[in-house]
Design a protein around this nucleic acid. Structure first.
Lengths: 214, 214
DNA sequence: TAGATTGTTAATCGATTAACAATC
DNA sequence: TAGATTGTTAATCGATTAACAATC
C-alpha cells in the first residue's frame, strides 16, 4: 500500500489522529473535512491530507473523510488489533503505575508478565498480574515469547538487562530508565521516554524570557 | 545573549546534553570535542556546534569544550537552579509515581502540594507531602503561588480544571491526562505527555514491515 | 450540474549537514 | 609554530504549506 517508508513525524502524529477520531466518533460525527479536523487538532489541513495520503486515499472529494472508516484504517496501520506480548521489568512506583494506568490492550499490546528483583514485593500483584522474581525471566520468555519489554529500572541496570532480554527474544523496548538505550541491531525497536527531559523543557519555557535577555 | 528565539528541536535536545555531560563529569572527563560527544550521543558534530552556538561560544578552538563549564552553562539556560513551585493534581497510581519518581528539585522545580478529590486518600502522604482535598486548592494557591500544575487526572476533567488553575495563577502545565490541552493564552506553557501515544508508536514500528507490504 | 473537498504537485520554509576560515 | 577544533557561513535535505486540477 505505502509506496515508501513513512517519515517519523507522520508516524508520531498517527496516534493523535486516532485519538481525535475516537472523540469524534463518540460525539457521533459521521464525516469531517481536513479543514475541520485541522482546526480541532491545531494542524494545517494540508498536512492532514498529506499524512493520510502516505497510506492511500481515505477520503472522498467533495465530501471529506468518513470518521469511523478513517479511524479504523489508522487503527489497522497502528496495529491496535495485534496482541504483542509485553513484559514489565521493575515494579517500583513507576512500574506499577504504568502497569495499572496504561491500557495496553487498546494499543495492540498485552501485558503478560511483571518482574522485579525485590523479594519483598515478589508474589504481590499489580494489574492482576503477580510480580515474579528475575530468576523466572528466562523460563517465562521461553514459554510465552514476549516481544516487548517495558524497562522501569535504574539507569545502571538498563544496558546489561537490555542485552540479556534481546538474547531472550525481546525486540522492542519501552524504556523509562534514565538511560538512552541504543541498540545496534536494526530489528530491535527502542522507544526512550524521559520524563525528566520533558519537565526540563517545560521549566525552560517557563523562564525563557529571562534566558533570552541575558 | 541569544540573538533570536531558540527553535524547539534545539530546546528539546538541551536536557539530553545536560544528562550526557553529567555522565561525563561523573567519569571525570574534563574536555570533550564536538566529534567525541556526537559519537556518544548519536548526533552529528555539526549539529552539536550549531546548538551550542545558539547561546554563544562555549568552546575553544583547538581544544573542544570544557565539560564542567559547558554543563553549568546549559544548566543555567535550562534553569536548574530555579525553584519554580509545582503542585500535582490527582494522586492515583500515576500521580503518586510521578511525585515519588521524578526528581523535581534537580530540574529547577519544587513539588509543594498534592491534591486529590478522593476522600479516602486525603490526609495520606506521598513524597513527604500530604494529599489535600480539592477544596483547599484556592487557599493554597493564594498562599504559596505555585506556577506549574502536574495534571494526573481523567481526560474529562482536564479542560475545566486547567481553566480554574489559570485563574489561580498557574501558567505552566505538565499534562498527563489523555487530553491535548490547548490554551489560547501565550503566557501559559503546556507540555502534553501522552504515554499511550508513545506505546502506539513503538507498537507500529514493531509490525511496520507487515503494514508497508500490505 | 455546481459546490465542495480531496489527492497531488510545486513552492516555501526550516533544520541538518558540510565546509572552511578563524584561532586557540 | 603546527595541529586541532571551534564558530559560522553555505549547501543540502526534508518537512510543511500553498495551490490547483481531478472528481465526488
Amino acid at each position: 500500500m505505502a509506496k515508501q517508508a513513512i517519515s517519523t513525524p507522520v508516524i508520531r502524529r498517527l496516534p493523535r489522529y486516532y485519538r481525535f477520531l475516537g472523540d469524534l466518533e463518540r460525539e457521533h460525527v459521521e464525516r469531517i473535512s481536513s479543514r475541520e479536523l485541522a482546526q480541532r487538532m491545531g494542524f494545517s489541513a494540508s498536512q492532514i491530507r498529506q499524512d493520510f495520503n502516505c497510506f492511500g486515499g481515505f477520503g472522498q472529494q467533495g465530501y471529506g473523510y468518513h470518521v469511523k472508516e478513517l479511524r479504523e484504517m489508522i487503527g489497522k496501520i497502528l496495529g491496535v488489533q495485534e496482541h504483542t506480548g509485553v513484559i514489565l521489568i521493575g515494579a517500583g512506583n513507576l512500574g506499577k503505575a504504568i502497569a495499572a494506568h496504561v491500557d495496553f490492550e487498546k494499543r495492540g499490546c498485552k501485558l503478560i508478565g511483571i518482574f522485579d528483583n525485590n523479594p519483598l514485593i515478589q508474589g504481590t500483584s499489580t494489574a492482576n498480574l503477580p510480580i515474579m522474581p528475575m530468576e523466572s525471566l528466562q523460563t517465562f520468555c521461553e514459554l510465552h515469547c514476549p516481544q516487548v519489554a517495558v524497562l522501569c529500572i535504574p539507569k545502571d541496570a538498563a544496558q546489561q538487562l537490555a542485552d540479556q532480554l534481546i538474547a531472550l527474544g525481546i525486540n522492542g523496548f519501552w524504556n523509562f530508565s534514565h538511560f538512552d538505550l541504543r541498540i545496534n541491531n536494526p530489528d530491535v525497536i527502542v522507544e526512550n521516554v524521559h520524563l525528566g527531559d520533558s519537565l526540563m523543557t517545560l521549566a525552560y519555557c517557563m523562564h525563557r524570557n529571562e534566558v533570552e535577555t541575558l
